[in-house]
Write a protein that binds this DNA or RNA. Structure first.
Lengths: 343, 343
DNA sequence: GTGAAAGCGCTAACAT
DNA sequence: ATGTTAGCGCTTTCAC
């Protein structure tokens, strides 16, 4: 059923029917009711393409998911984030367009997206320092919101980010308060903006207590379980081992936990662990999170907020001024995080 | 740059330019070359909506991701699968449309997708027994491929599935060959078709050796780490504990591994573990998978294959006959899977 | 081999 | 308050 058929059925012009359906004020209440009723009864849904062609809007938001040619790993944050954003799109009657592309083709993808008019805006994922995609999107005139920050000219674009500095400052403070002095940082790759900020928070907390950060206690790699295991094992085998760990991902923390066990130590008694992870959806059903989680914030929520911000920007008549949103991590203290070893 | 402008620039009609670009045979070679050259030089990309409106095709495939109102957990297979499928769509110049909806709205979503003409076909995820969505899609006339099977009239629709029965038959055989006789099954929820098949394979292997499956050794729940931990802990505390585990997910297996450690046992020496998991991407970079993986197959690959099958079906002129693809799991034996305890 | 014109389903000026 | 008309950017008859 299309507009033409529906209007013929009602004995009205397409225009009137269209206006009634789109809540134009000039339509009489009686007509509107009658039209809407008929539309529902006949299961009428306007054709997106036709509507888009007529209005110049696509009612779709694009997400470009780069597949790294080096890592070939699918960043686990995407699932969670996409789910959050998707809820907002669905509620706002927007479609979500996903483009999975080799990272080398990313620029071309944005260009095509813009030229084809497939989307009204995009979300930019995983920004790195001084990201080239930001000027590109600006050039293309495609509205966008960045999830995270590119560590440069942060006022010039819109973003939603977690306060990583503060999260790690608090996590480290928490361990310091327990009496720990040798605290290891098992961080993600520092080519990512968030990892740099996490280290900054960690170092700031130490320095505030007069402790000089020890390079031997700081690791930075892609956040796999294996990496956590190796990092913790090596540091624990050191002559001056850490008594606590601040860990940058749940998966990595699982490795750390294992290394602690392998070393004959008990978590919460001999060693304290604090985790910051944005992706906890796969554990939501676990009930008892079997490792001491100190700080967390949900990427799912970030997805929702990015989407909301973008839709708002698109809806604005004037060229939007950048918006910023800094999320504070929720602090969740495990009951048996444990004190620092005495003596 | 649009067709009109491009054709004006070339001093040709829109028709000729369109024909040249779409490789119609009646265009002269010289013209075609000239047109394509100009298109590239001017960065011309046809508007998707206009093209779709004219051809009646959307060049997009839909994926409906239901958010369970009960679990609010994002099924981790999606990320991997979507990435695989996305690669194929990109290569075939198709867009991927994702709809994240509360599972109660799923039916309506498919109806809207069809009415709006937003997609040329859909992939059906996570089919359950006698899935209602299958007749619905048929009614809507929307081409589709099912990832997995609905356990009913399997010949009547197209699907791509992993041979779960065989995978668990082999995994169990492997443990039996090591000498194990009390083998536990830590399975997923049996409302899912794949879990039922896995149990069938497990039971078949046991029965073939004259062993009656012991209900006390079989668990079936949502596959969290915590579940794995509880299941293994309880069974190991039993008076007649298992000496081996066949586990249905990596995450669950992590819990099993922990329970084994907690019980003072060593994996590979006292207890053997075999895992079947379709989602291993997040471990790809781990190098050393720290737990003994017996059988695996990648959902990523399934995503690619589903997408390929669907595009092929859509391209077919006649109403397609159903296609089926059963993937055999790759068998990866960990080096320290260990023998059965003697005596 | 090329072009003119109609039409895909809708919205938005411009009447009335 | 409703209708007429043009047009969004493309493909596709139908003519030449």
């Amino acid at each position: 059923m299309n507009l033409k058929e529906l209007s013929a059925l009602l004995g009205l012009s397409q225009t009137t029917v269209s206006r009634a359906l789109n809540d134009y004020p000039e339509v009489s209440e009686a007509t509107r009711r009658r039209v809407k009723e008929a539309a529902r009864a006949n299961n009428y849904t306007p054709n997106t393409r036709a509507k888009g062609l007529a209005t110049g809007r696509s009612m779709a938001i694009g997400h470009v998911i780069p597949i790294s040619t080096r890592h070939e790993i699918v960043n686990p944050i995407f699932a969670d984030f996409i789910a959050g954003a998707g809820e907002i799109y669905t509620a706002g009657n927007y479609d979500m367009l996903l483009s999975v592309v080799p990272d080398v083709d990313e620029e071309r993808t944005y260009r095509t997206l813009a030229a084809r008019g497939s989307v009204d805006g995009v979300i930019l994922h995983g920004p790195h320092a001084d990201d080239r995609r930001i000027p590109l999107l600006r050039e293309l005139g495609l509205p966008f919101v960045v999830h995270g920050r590119a560590g440069h000219e942060e006022d010039s674009y819109s973003w939603v980010d977690v306060n990583n500095t503060r999260a790690f400052r608090r996590a480290t403070d928490f361990l310091l308060d327990l009496g720990h002095r040798r605290i290891a940082l098992v961080n993600g790759l520092e080519s990512m903006d968030f990892a740099r900020r996490r280290r900054a928070g960690y170092e700031a907390a130490l320095k505030a207590r007069g402790i000089t950060p020890d390079p031997a206690l700081m690791r930075s790699e892609e956040m796999t379980e294996d990496y956590g295991w190796r990092a913790a094992r090596d540091m624990l085998a050191d002559e001056n081992p850490p008594t606590a760990f601040a860990v940058s991902s749940m998966l990595t923390a699982i490795g750390v936990r294992r290394a602690i066990g392998d070393a004959g130590l008990e978590m919460g008694r001999d060693v304290s662990v604090v985790i910051h992870d944005d992706v906890l959806s796969y554990l939501k059903n676990g009930g008892d999170i079997p490792i001491f989680t100190a700080a967390r914030s949900s990427v799912h929520e970030a997805g929702r907020l990015c989407a909301e911000m973008l839709l708002r920007i698109i809806a604005e008549p004037a060229p939007a001024t950048p918006r910023h949103l800094l999320l504070e991590s929720e602090l969740v203290i495990g009951s048996s995080t444990g004190p620092a070893p005495t003596g």
